[in-house]
Design a protein around this nucleic acid. Structure first.
Lengths: 122, 122
DNA sequence: CAGCATCCTGAGCGATACTG
DNA sequence: CAGTATCGCTCAGGATGCTG
């Protein structure tokens, strides 16, 4: 199953993961997987994100082809962000990751407690 | 399969992912999945990491129960880092992630090029 | 509404020196 | 060998204010 040992974590992979798995990207992709959103809809959906960070996250995801930015020429202009087909392919790996996190969170918290209490701090 | 939309990216999940998917953790886990390693073996296996960052990474992974630190009382002492059963459970999500990255890297690079050339820069 | 520009703080990291 | 300790810097990110 995982008997072979060929993980590959070279620089391009690392850079890509940094760009699509960073602090706010998952939350944004999550929202946009549900439905297209406008900028301030995203801000409301992810209250902890600042405007600056959200802008940066959206640009980065757009640059990597994960989402699409569409200018709707109403008045005033509305901006519509939506997930791309390429972005949708991230769904499965993310789900696997989050499933793993959920499943093992209790064991990990136990490990942390054990480490923290028995940490000699010398 | 992933038809429902319930990704969960709350703060504890985010924190956990930050700790186990950070810059050097994947490379370290990669090495330790192959075989137990001593400190300087890891340094040689991951040339770009500094001693300080490697120490921090190892402590963090140990605290989260992913790896185990064993003091071998030879002379001078040797430290043996090895993956735990809990750490091994990360293998599958990481593999899925890296497989995704490899598969879509070309499309992503095309998206980046397109974005960069056509970027109006205002 | 959807940003951009600016200032600012602090976590993270490299470099260096020292230790059991 | 396997670290700890300290210094200095960079730079991501928050807060705030302004704009088409």
């Amino acid at each position: 199953m995982d008997t072979d040992g060929e993980l590959r974590i070279d620089a391009p992979h690392r850079e890509l993961l940094d760009q699509v798995l960073d602090k706010w990207s998952l939350a944004v992709l999550n929202e946009l997987c549900e439905r297209p959103c406008r900028f301030n809809e995203l801000r409301r959906a992810i209250p902890a994100v600042t405007q600056k960070s959200l802008t940066a996250t959206l640009r980065r995801l757009e640059r990597n082809g994960m989402i699409e930015r569409e200018v709707v020429s109403t008045r005033p202009v509305a901006i519509r962000y939506q997930i791309t087909p390429l972005g949708k392919t991230m769904r499965q790996p993310i789900d696997v990751l989050l499933a793993w996190a959920s499943e093992h969170m209790p064991a990990i918290e136990r490990a942390r407690d054990a480490f923290d209490t028995r940490a000699p701090r010398h």
